[in-house]
Design a protein around this nucleic acid. Structure first.
Length: 668
DNA sequence: ATTAGGG
DNA sequence: CCCTAAT
């Protein structure tokens, strides 16, 4: 496995989207991968931040922090790419991804756990990290570390990964090996960074805490269950397709299950390894659940659990923050330059240098309809500095370019030549799963349920205090090339950007993140539906992952807090306004009460309307949440006579602000 | 600016 | 989804 990397050179590109939670969650999962990547390969990272900035970035990590304790970061996608002999990057196939994952799982048992307090502890065999660890603080995430520090850390990381030792050398070549203490971070490019990081890191207590809280994985609170466990490979394939809208050749059941779970939960950290699947229950191995109990702001275990891969425990715990920082930092420095390049690069046509115009919504929509069809690329969002970015729905028009500096990329040193990695959009071009029916079908079989939707839980922290995340993301055209950067170091603003767009078939391997593909473009315009009807122009069918996010958001913040949910959970989705969320919730509610009584089967009534059927587990959750939050309308309630068992006693209707979580915890 | 509702 | 009213 190790050789896999060496011989093939795998490059993982990380793309962030604006949901901070995702970032956090994903981190858990990707951290180890990142290590690997970082050590031996190039990592593409981008960062951008600034208060009202948005980042667009194609393949980058973006973090936006506003002073007002808003932070945005969203990572979303990561992609594996194989470096071909000629230096071309080819998107990895599922199999390769799987391979990598296995490698990570097996070889690098890196487990990240936070110790109490904010210090990350490295329990790995080698403690080399100790010194380099920083306290894990949410703030840390916001700081961009000096790239230079990366080297040191990375080395440490390498150490932890037992079998990868040899890679060190390679790694070293790549990164400057300076080991900078964490504290020193930010200085190299200090100016800029500081400037960009408005948020007074240390100070934003509330935000920080909330932030952290939001990422704590609370597996124990999972509610929805989907039975993937007993499905055959074939069925899993069907499910996979239904979930992600594409096929996969992977035969590994575990992998499939995990992928599906992630897709449904929209989280990457659901690794099956975390669970022990028994007949119809998924149990967690390890103590991940502790997370729930601790609510301190500084969550000690924010990350616990995130390392799904090795929940086993004792492995190595490393602080995530560090890693993240590394990435960020590296990106940050390169961001600007890269960004600019990127943009240019991406713009194919019109745009060389012009400023982005912000047409009115209407205008845009209209235009898009006229000519956008072909652009699969999505547009960016409007920028509202204030927050909800793209709320205005700007439709994709031509691609736009970014506005700020985005970010990133690095290339692979091993490849020698600066390879550029073509950017692969994480966005699925095709529409999201349409045939989810298959999944439903399987579920209805009633086999044991195995995978549960994962819920990331987050506990209740005051919603209000949450930081908000903002985001703005622009997506460049998928095909745009990645910018390559020669190494890590240049903070310089710009360099030339070399862009190259190798085109890869994105679709081919896009898999991992489909879930996030939520905002893939759908071009608006009417689309004929299978049934013959025409779908409304701006209609975007809700994807399962969006639904899950919504449900989760409601569970976290309570129904009614749409804007909060929008900001936090749907930061990346420029479409889907708070109103949309509300409407969707209304529909979900209706659906859940309507069809639950019928059967728990799956949520598909015969009439699968144009929208995807919602899996029963999700509807169940919806119902529960509704009941907990007293949202159930009397009518519905009556319909389902007594559903109210135990649950409702405590809830007083009316206050939806109750900590939903608390209430919820009782269940499950 | 956000929300709740009706259309 | 859109639109509007109320807040």
């Amino acid at each position: 496995m190790v050789n896999f990397y060496q011989s093939k050179k795998v490059i993982i590109v990380i793309e962030f989207d604006s949901d901070f939670n995702f970032l956090c969650r994903r981190w858990g999962i990707f951290v180890s991968e990142l290590h690997v990547v970082e050590c031996y390969m190039e990592t593409v990272v981008a960062v951008e931040e600034s208060e009202k900035t948005k980042i667009e970035g194609t393949s980058a990590i973006v973090i936006t922090c506003s002073d007002s304790s808003k932070q945005i970061a969203d990572p979303v996608v990561y992609k594996l790419a194989r470096v071909e002999g000629d230096g071309r990057l080819v998107p990895a196939t599922d199999d390769e991804v799987m391979e990598v994952e296995d490698l990570l799982d097996d070889k690098n048992s890196v487990h990240f756990v936070l110790d109490t307090g904010q210090t990350a502890v490295c329990t790995s065999n080698k403690d080399t990290f100790g010194q380099e660890f920083m306290p894990i603080d949410c703030e840390g995430l916001l700081k961009f570390e000096d790239p230079s520090t990366q080297g040191g850390r990375s080395d440490a990381l390498v150490d932890t990964t037992v079998d990868l030792g040899k890679l060190n050398s390679q790694y070293e070549e790549i990164t400057p090996s300076k080991s900078t203490p964490v504290g020193g971070q930010i200085d190299q490019y200090g100016d800029r960074k500081q400037a960009e990081l408005p948020l007074g890191s240390a100070e934003s207590e509330p935000s920080t805490s909330t932030m952290c809280a939001s990422w704590k994985p609370h597996f124990s609170k999972l509610k929805g269950e989907i039975c993937l466990d007993n499905l055959s490979v074939r069925e899993l394939h069907a499910t996979f397709k239904a979930t992600f809208g594409r096929e996969t050749s992977v035969k590994d059941k575990q992998w499939l299950k995990r992928r599906i779970s992630m897709g449904l939960s929209n989280s990457c950290d659901v690794s099956t390894t975390t669970f022990i699947i028994e007949n119809d229950r998924v149990k967690k191995k390890g103590k991940v659940e502790d997370c729930n109990s601790k609510d301190e702001d500084h969550s000690e275990d924010r990350f616990a659990g995130s390392g799904g891969r090795n929940v086993s425990g004792d492995d190595i715990s490393v602080s995530h923050s560090i890693h993240m920082e590394d990435h960020f930092s590296s990106s940050s420095k390169s961001v600007q330059s890269a960004t600019s390049k990127h943009h240019f690069a991406s713009e194919d046509d019109h745009q060389g240098a012009k400023r982005v115009r912000k047409p009115t919504k209407r205008y845009i929509e209209e235009v898009s309809e006229l000519d956008c069809r072909e652009y699969s690329g999505r547009l960016l969002s409007s920028f509202k500095s204030s927050g909800h970015g793209p709320r205005t729905r700007v439709r994709p028009i031509h691609n736009i370019q970014p506005v700020r500096r985005p970010l990133v990329t690095r290339q692979d040193s091993l490849g020698g030549s600066g390879v550029q990695i073509p950017y692969v959009s994480r966005i699925r071009r095709g529409r999201p799963r349409e045939n989810f029916m298959a999944l439903m079908k399987f579920q209805s079989c009633g086999v044991g349920m195995a995978a549960r939707l994962v819920k990331k839980a987050h506990d209740g922290h005051d919603p209000q205090s949450d930081n908000e995340i903002e985001n703005q993301e622009l997506k460049a055209r998928p095909v745009t090339g990645w910018v390559q950067q020669p190494l890590i170091q240049e903070p310089v603003e710009n360099q030339q950007h070399s862009e190259q767009s190798a085109d890869l078939n994105d679709d081919a391997d896009e898999g991992h993140m489909d879930s996030y593909a939520d905002d893939s473009d759908d071009n608006i315009l009417t689309v004929p539906t299978a049934k013959g009807g025409m779908r409304r122009k701006h209609h975007r069918p809700w994807t399962l992952s969006e639904v899950v996010k919504l449900v989760e958001g409601v569970s976290r913040y309570g129904a009614g807090r749409w804007s909060e949910i929008k900001r936090i959970s749907f930061a990346t989705c420029s479409h889907r306004t708070a109103v949309d969320l509300k409407d969707k919730w209304r529909n979900l509610l209706r659906a859940s009460f309507a069809q639950l009584p019928a059967e728990k089967g799956v949520g598909n009534s015969k009439k699968q309307s144009s929208s995807i059927p919602i899996p029963a587990p999700i509807l169940l959750r919806v119902r529960e949440l509704a009941e907990m939050q007293s949202q159930v309308s009397p009518d519905l309630k009556s319909v389902k006579y007594n559903n109210n068992h135990n649950n409702n006693n405590n809830n007083n209707s009316g206050s939806r602000n109750n900590n939903v979580n608390d209430i919820r915890s009782g269940f499950l």
